[in-house]
Amino acid sequence: METKTDTEQKVLPDKGAENNKEVVIKIEHLKKSFGSNEVLSDITVDLHKGENLVVLGRSGQGKSVAIKCIVGLLYQDSGELTVFDQDVKSLNETELKELRMRVGFLFQSGALYDSMTVRENLEFPLTRVKKMDKKDELDALVNEVLEGVGLPDAIDKMPSDLSGGQKKRIGLARTLILKPEIMLYDEPTTGLDPITSREISELILQMQKKYQTSSIIITHDLECAKITGDRLVVMNDGKFIAEGTYEELENSKDELVKSFFIKK
């Protein structure tokens, strides 16, 4: 029988209002360990259609592990994880590939393919996954996403010629080119200066509106959380300790939650 901690009881809001929204990702009592190191001890959360859910927490708390479980890069030890009502752990290779086409993942570093130009990076998922081979169609889609992220001139550059912020933008463009329904962002503003961080956060919001995606944004950047988040969950020691809007959590009486919102 699960019992909530005092912190959870104080901060977690009534979920009744959210019950009428379609759930696209459902995570229940997810646990994951690496050897004796328990990274996710018990996390439960839903992502609703069209919402931006921010997972806030210090580094090394298992935030990235949680979203890697969503796309089947890692598998949970126990608990349930369904995406579009499909149990990720039980999907076969083909089903997982189909699911991944509907879920975009922006990696912390952008993860651009070093040996390819920006154009080749963007065409890669289209030619391999969507089996597109007509040059005019490819060009149109590549130009559309590059315009969207504000880097149309970077089309023939190599990743090594791009700045950190540009790499994130191109990484985002490469993910959005498949028109995913869910976006997972792993620390999208880490390693960027405050101005570029704000630009990326605003870009995430713009892209969410343009492509009508539901998103999970993993971050420890409060400004990014404030700009992008419809709802925030705070993660500590492998579990969620609080949930609410940015304002609700900012005004929380709980010491641990408050400690995340102390501005330097």
Binding site: K68, K97, T175
Partner: peptide
């Protein structure tokens, strides 16, 4: 994470 990126894109 380039290999992971390839994998999650469905390639």
């Amino acid at each position: 994470e380039q290999i992971d990126a390839m994998e999650v894109s469905g390639a």
